[in-house]
Design a protein around this nucleic acid. Structure first.
Length: 282
DNA sequence: AACACGGGGAT
DNA sequence: ATCCCAGTGTT
């Protein structure tokens, strides 16, 4: 249904990324680097890396120190070590040929559900269920009318996206939806003005409702200092959370959400106005 | 299901 | 100051 618009948009607007014109090893390196790391940050490191170690066999001969150094400041340096281990296994056990099925791919260090599916699609051109954060966000908005997808993909979500994957050129569909999510249907400030499927977007038609958790987080933010202190004090006095959990409140949305719900249920804070919380008047 | 694991650009 | 990112592995 949206397929034609999205594919046409992709054809016209896709970025010229080096891992879109390389071999299977080049794709694997890119997938490792792109785990939780934005494209623009990966680009320069990827270029240097592939120049230095163009094959699994060449990387297999490097030392861990060289590998970590070349990884630079990409973050999650364990990925560099795992990619190095991959190179060794692929060179020794697979004679340099990357296995072409998901179960063998997943048995490799550092390759999980996503990367195995991505390799099937982007390295081997197969039809596979590629569900990265960009694609998940795009369809959460388009279909469910919500701002953000759930923490992990539900069975229904997988089944629904699976049903959309075309039998022909499935890897292009995966790249196109991912690119649309990354460039247009962005997490913050989505560019609906240039979106090829804006007219069909449920989230847009509902006037961009925010998810409860985002709302609560903003509310927590907007709550004045004194009131926040009181809320934390209430949490501590009532032993609703452990000390360590209170300290992490900012960084662990699930705990913040749980805490606020409990406080509301117990009447320890009250909703005020459209999107505010405050201590109850006594 | 919840967490740890990096780092830097955007806002 | 906080959110975000082509996730994986462990508990």
């Amino acid at each position: 249904m949206y397929e034609k618009e999205i594919l046409a948009w992709f054809k016209k607007n896709k970025r010229d990324l080096p891992w879109r014109k390389t071999d299977t090893w080049g794709v694997l390196v890119s997938e490792f680097m792109l785990q939780q790391t934005p494209v623009n940050r990966v680009l320069p490191v990827y270029i240097d890396w592939m120049k230095r170690w163009p094959t699994a066999a060449t990387l297999a001969k490097a030392t861990p120190a060289e590998v970590i150094t070349a990884w630079g400041r990409l973050g999650y340096p364990r990925r560099a070590l795992r990619l190095h281990e991959c190179a060794k296994v692929i060179t020794k056990e697979y004679k340099g040929r990357i296995p072409e099925n998901e179960s063998e791919l997943r048995a490799l260090p550092g390759i999980g559900e996503y990367t195995a599916a991505a390799m099937m699609a982007f390295a081997f051109g197969a039809r596979s269920l590629v569900l990265d954060i960009n694609i998940r966000r795009l369809f959460a908005r388009l279909y469910d009318g919500v701002q953000s997808p759930t923490a992990s993909a539900t069975k229904q979500e997988k089944a629904r996206y699976e049903a959309l994957i075309p039998s022909k050129d499935a890897h292009i569909w995966a790249a196109a939806t991912m690119e649309l999510g990354a460039l247009v249907c962005t997490s913050q400030s989505p560019k609906c003005g240039i979106c090829p499927v804006a007219k069909d977007c449920t989230w847009r038609s509902l006037d961009y409702p925010q998810s409860d958790i985002v709302k609560r987080r903003q509310t927590w933010h907007g709550t004045d200092r004194q009131c926040r202190g009181a809320i934390v004090q209430a949490l501590r006095e009532n032993e609703l959370l452990k000390k360590s959990e209170i300290a992490q409140l900012w960084d662990v949305p699930s705990q913040l959400e749980k805490a606020l719900i409990t406080l509301l249920d117990d009447g320890l804070i009250e909703a005020r106005g459209k999107s505010g919380y405050s201590l109850p008047r006594t």
